Deep mutational scan, measured.
Amino acid sequence: MQIFVKTLTGKTITLEVEPSDTIENVKAKIQDKEGIPPDQQRLIFNGKQLEDGRTLSDYNIQKDSTLHLVLR
């Protein structure tokens, strides 16, 4: 499925993911596309910070959902 990740600069990254993917996996995909190390990434969905060990389906993230990427 496709999800979107919006950065603070207003750029939107499109990712191909599975609901069973962990947040860690998603961060690795963002690193592949953008070169941002996962330990600098914080992903936010519906105002909640997403934890590495959880999956997209844990957070009820579905296709065409938009996550927000904050760098630390």
Rank of each mutant, 00 (worst) to 15 (best):
M1D: 03
M1V: 11
Q2L: 09
Q2G: 09
I3N: 00
F4T: 08
V5D: 00
V5H: 00
K6M: 07
T7W: 03
L8Y: 08
L8M: 03
T9Y: 12
T9V: 15
G10M: 09
G10R: 02
G10Y: 09
K11V: 10
K11R: 03
T12L: 07
T12E: 14
I13K: 02
I13P: 00
T14L: 04
T14D: 11
T14A: 09
L15H: 01
L15I: 10
L15Q: 04
E16R: 05
E16S: 10
E16G: 06
E16A: 11
E16P: 06
V17E: 01
V17L: 02
E18P: 05
E18T: 06
P19L: 07
S20D: 12
S20V: 02
T22I: 05
T22K: 10
I23K: 01
I23F: 02
N25R: 08
N25E: 08
N25Y: 09
V26S: 02
V26Y: 00
V26A: 12
K27N: 14
K27Y: 14
K27F: 10
K27D: 00
A28Q: 12
A28P: 05
A28Y: 11
A28M: 05
K29P: 00
I30N: 01
Q31K: 06
Q31V: 07
Q31M: 04
D32V: 08
D32F: 08
D32N: 08
K33E: 06
K33L: 11
K33M: 11
E34L: 05
E34P: 03
G35W: 05
I36W: 14
I36F: 07
P37Q: 10
P37R: 03
P38S: 15
D39A: 02
D39S: 10
Q40G: 02
Q40S: 11
Q41Y: 07
Q41N: 15
Q41M: 11
Q41K: 05
R42H: 11
R42W: 07
R42G: 15
L43G: 00
L43Q: 00
L43A: 02
I44V: 12
I44S: 07
N46A: 12
G47I: 10
G47T: 05
K48E: 14
K48P: 07
Q49T: 12
L50A: 06
E51W: 03
E51T: 02
D52G: 03
D52K: 02
G53H: 07
G53W: 03
R54H: 12
R54E: 13
R54D: 15
T55P: 15
L56G: 01
L56V: 03
S57H: 15
D58G: 02
D58K: 01
Y59L: 05
N60K: 04
N60D: 08
N60M: 11
I61P: 01
I61T: 05
Q62V: 10
K63S: 07
D64F: 11
S65Q: 15
S65K: 02
S65E: 11
T66W: 14
T66S: 02
H68K: 04
H68W: 01
L69P: 00
L69R: 00
L69Q: 13
L69F: 06
V70T: 13
V70K: 03
L71S: 15
L71N: 06
L71H: 06
R72K: 13
R72M: 08
R72N: 15
